[in-house]
Design a binder for these strands. Structure first.
Lengths: 352, 352
DNA sequence: CTGAAAGCGCTTACAG
DNA sequence: CTGAAAGCGCTTACAG
C-alpha cells in the first residue's frame, strides 16, 4: 500500500480569530478591513488582503448572517429540469439574480412536494422564493400563503391563475389565437389537437385560445376540432406524436391542420405523417410550441410559438427585486407576456 | 389608490425564543423536541409539532450550523446549462445528493471564473465541491488545491486529466475507437471530422480515439481524415454542421463518413447533405455524440454515442459521499466510464 | 491600531 | 419540565 505523501503542515484557518493571529493583527482590525471600514492604514489593508489571497480565508457566512448581514439569497423551486424551456428560465433567472448580487438556492421539486422545499428555503432565511413551472395549484397557493405570513417575497413564473400569487406568465391563450388565425388564413377549417387535452391550467388556457381563434372565424371547438389523445399513452412525446398522427390518418376525414402541445409532439406527428407517405405542409400542416432548437433541424422546419423566455424572466426578476423587503401590497401582481408566432415550413395552404 | 387590506395580526416567529413563548414552553424544551432528544412527555412533543405545523416555524439554519451542526451541503459548479448532457448530469447529481440528505448549492460558472464560486462555497462551509463540465485546466487545478488545503472533498465530472483531481469521466477515446470501428466495418476508409479540432481536452481525447481506431484498420489521422472546421465560424452547431457538409461536398473526393463532435452538428450535416440532393446513409454515413432525444426524431435517425450519464453520476456520487469527512488520500481517484455506441439509421455501408 | 464586551439564534450540559 | 449559562464566529460600538 502506497504511503500518503506527508501533508504540508498548513494550519487550516477557520475563523477570524485564527486569521487575525496568522496576520498578527487584532480580530477587530481584520473585521474592519474585511468590511471596508474607514480609518485604516493602507499598509494594514494590504497586509490583510495579501494574507487572504495566500490562505484562502473566507469568513463564515453563517456567522455573518447571524450577526445581521442580509442573506441576499433567493430560493428557486423548479418543477423539472427535463424540459429545455424550464432550464432556460432557470439559467436566465440565476444569471439575472447573480448580476444583482443575489445567490440562488435552487431546488428541483421533490416527489414529496413543495412543503419540504419551502421549509428549507425558510430555514436558510431566503429573501424571496420563485417557482418555475407547472404545479399543483392548491399546494402552491398554500406555500405562497406561508411565505406571505413570513413576509417573504415570492413570484411564480409560468403558472398563471394561482390565487394570491404574484405571477409572470406567457399569454398562452393569445398564442393559440394567433396560431389558429395563421392556419385559418391558410385555408384550414378542421383541426387536430395533439396533447392539448391535459387538465393542467396551461393546457386549459391553450384550449381556450383555440376556441377564441376558431370563434373569430365562425368555427368552434366542438364542431371543428378533433382530439385523439385518449388513444395513446403519453410516455414520451415524440412517440406520442407519431402514434397520434397514425390515428388521425385512420379517420375517415382527417383534419388538415395539426396543432401540438409542444415541439416534440409536433415533430413526432410530422414524422408519422411522412412515414405514411404524406407530405408536410402540402398534405397536412403541423404546428408546435416552445420554439426549441430542434424545430430548425427538421425537414420541414417547424412552425411554432416562442415563449419569449428572456423577456419573461427579465420581467420576473425586476418584479421580484422590487418586492424584496417591501411590505406586501394589497393585491398580487400579475403580468402576462406576449408570445411570438414563428412561422416556418411545416404550415402551408390547406389542400384544396 | 386602493388601500391594502388589513394584515392578519400574526406575530411572525423568527427564533426559538419567540416560538417557545408562543407554545408556552421553555426554549430548552423546544430545542430538545426539535432535536428528538429523549425524556419528554408525548404530550409536550405533540404540542410543539402542532405549533410548528401552524406557524411554519423553522429554526435558523445559520445558527444551527454555527452551533456545530453539519451543513450537509455540497457545492456544484456547472460550466453551462445550455447543453442537455450538462443539465442531465446536474439534475441526476442533485437528486442523488438529496436522497443522501445533502443540499446542493448550484452555481453556473460565472464569466469572472471559478474563484468567486469556490470562495462562495467555502464561505458556506460546504462539505464537498463538484465540478461538472469542461473548464480551464490550470484554473480548476488551482481551485482543487485550494479545496484540498481546506480539507474539503471534491470531484470533477467529465473533465479528465486535471492534475491532482478526483475525476469521473467518460472514456471518450474508447467512444471514438468504437465509432471508427463501426464505420470501418461498414467499408468506410475516408473520414470527415466535424468540430473535433477544438483544443479542449475532451476533443483531444476524441481525436486520439479516432487515431487509435484508424490505426487498428491500418489507417491514420494524417492520411485518412479531413477537417474543414477552420472554414466556418461555430456560432450555432446546427448551422455549423450544415455549412461543413457543403464544404465537404465541394471537395474533389469527399470522405464517405462524417464523424461529428455532437448530435447537433451531425444533424446539421445530414440536413446539408440532403439539401444538396444526397442521401444518408446511402451516399454518406454520419455519426453524432451524446445521444440526445433529437437523434430519434430525424430522418434518418442518428447513430450516436451515449455518455451513460446515469452511471457516471451514480459513480460520482458514491465516490464523493465516501470522501466527505475523510482525510484526503495520497493519490486522486480517477474513474472512467465506458460509453455505449447507439447504432441507428444514419450510418450504413460505404458507397462502392 | 488594540482589546474587552455585547449580542445575533441556536444547543447543550447543569442545577433545580 | 424550567431557567440560567456558555459558546459557536462574527460585527460593532467603546474606551484606551
Amino acid at each position: 500500500m502506497p504511503r500518503s505523501p506527508a501533508q504540508t503542515p498548513v494550519r487550516v484557518i477557520r475563523s477570524t480569530t485564527d486569521f487575525a493571529r496568522h496576520v498578527g493583527l487584532a480580530r477587530t482590525t481584520v473585521s474592519r478591513v474585511l468590511n471596508g471600514q474607514p480609518g485604516l492604514k493602507q499598509k494594514t489593508i494590504d497586509r490583510v488582503h495579501r494574507a487572504i489571497a495566500e490562505t484562502g480565508f473566507t469568513p463564515n457566512a453563517y456567522a455573518l448572517h447571524l450577526k445581521g448581514k442580509r442573506t441576499a439569497t433567493v430560493g428557486i423551486c423548479v418543477e423539472t429540469l427535463m424540459t429545455p424551456p424550464a432550464v432556460l428560465k432557470l439559467a436566465t433567472l440565476q444569471r439575472l439574480l447573480r448580476e444583482a448580487d443575489y445567490t440562488s438556492l435552487i431546488e428541483v421539486l421533490a416527489p414529496d412536494g413543495s412543503q419540504r422545499v419551502v421549509r428549507h428555503f425558510l430555514s436558510m432565511r431566503v429573501e424571496a422564493v420563485v417557482f418555475i413551472g407547472h404545479f399543483a395549484e392548491a399546494e402552491i397557493a398554500q406555500r405562497i400563503e406561508e411565505l406571505k405570513r413570513h413576509g417573504i417575497a415570492h413570484l411564480v413564473i409560468d403558472h398563471a391563475g394561482i390565487p394570491g400569487a404574484n405571477t409572470v406568465a406567457l399569454d398562452r391563450r393569445r398564442a393559440m389565437v394567433e396560431t389558429i388565425a395563421h392556419l385559418v388564413g391558410l385555408g384550414h377549417r378542421s383541426f387536430g389537437l395533439l396533447g392539448l387535452s391535459s387538465p393542467l391550467r396551461s393546457a386549459q388556457d391553450r384550449r381556450a385560445g383555440v376556441a377564441d381563434g376558431l370563434a373569430a372565424a365562425g368555427l368552434s371547438l366542438a364542431h371543428d376540432t378533433l382530439s385523439l389523445d385518449h388513444l395513446h399513452p403519453r410516455h414520451q412525446d415524440f412517440a406520442f406524436g407519431r402514434a397520434l398522427a397514425a390515428s388521425f390518418l385512420a379517420q375517415a376525414h382527417p383534419p388538415t391542420a395539426l396543432v401540438a402541445l409542444n415541439d416534440e409532439i409536433a415533430i413526432g406527428a410530422i414524422n408519422g405523417l411522412q412515414q405514411a407517405g404524406h407530405r408536410v405542409p402540402e398534405h397536412f400542416s403541423v404546428s408546435g410550441f416552445n420554439n426549441q432548437d430542434l424545430g430548425r433541424m427538421t425537414v420541414p422546419t417547424l412552425t411554432t410559438v416562442d415563449q419569449q423566455i428572456e423577456r419573461t424572466v427579465e420581467a420576473a426578476a425586476a418584479i421580484l427585486l422590487a418586492q424584496i423587503g417591501r411590505p406586501p401590497r394589497g393585491r398580487p401582481i400579475v403580468r402576462s407576456v406576449q408570445p411570438l408566432l414563428v412561422v416556418r415550413e411545416s404550415t402551408g395552404p390547406a389542400r384544396a
